[in-house]
Amino acid sequence: MRLIEGRNITIGYEDDPVLSGLSFTVDDCDYLCIVGENGSGKSTFIKTVLSLIPPLSGKILFENGLKRNEIGYLPQQAGIQRDFPSSVMEVVLSGCLNRHRKLFGYSKDEKERAMHELARLGMAGKRQSSFQELSGGQQQRVLLARALMATDKLLLLDEPAAGLDAAATAELYEIIDSLHGSGTAIMMVTHDIHPALNAADTILHLSHGSYFFGRKEEYFRSEMGRIFLKEAGHDHQ
């Protein structure tokens, strides 16, 4: 079942196209890794998928009931203040704000949903805690629960493991794998080659002016994939 399809899109800002002729698809249960050097347009691509900036040409189609603004998004950590006084529940509940209609407080359903998402990520015991007192890995799990409040069809993760130590990184990838296993499609920007090698089904490699989109196996046989692997120290061919 198709969720998102980009047809021949050009991404970038006015008069400054970063990449053109890009086509890609994300299906139900897909695991797409987005890789590429700094400045190759990964952030621009994400903003385009999130409908924050329109594609300069071409179209992004949302299918099978997936709505714009309903992508479970985990932004890069840099944007969040670590010392922000907020409870874990407040953070998670803010994930359903775009559908929120009540003036004061959140409804019982919304609270139950938040509890359910926290429990799935092993954070039920921390719901009363203050967000600022959690470890980096725990904070990421809370933000993942917030993303799941928007939808559990598709998660868009922007370098989720940045700044985490090895143990927390492994734990986070395990959680992402288990979400993928339970039917959530994953789109993940990463600098880390390992998730691409292990879990991903499809790869989108953005490079200055060109790109690769396809199955992981094809990617590793492609010129672009070989160079990427070599640079990442996985030159085993």
Partner: peptide, 14 residues
């Protein structure tokens, strides 16, 4: 609250 805590997430959810 949402636009103070995490503007990029808030923007993304509309």
């Amino acid at each position: 609250y949402a636009s103070t805590f995490d503007p990029s997430f808030a923007e993304a959810t509309g």
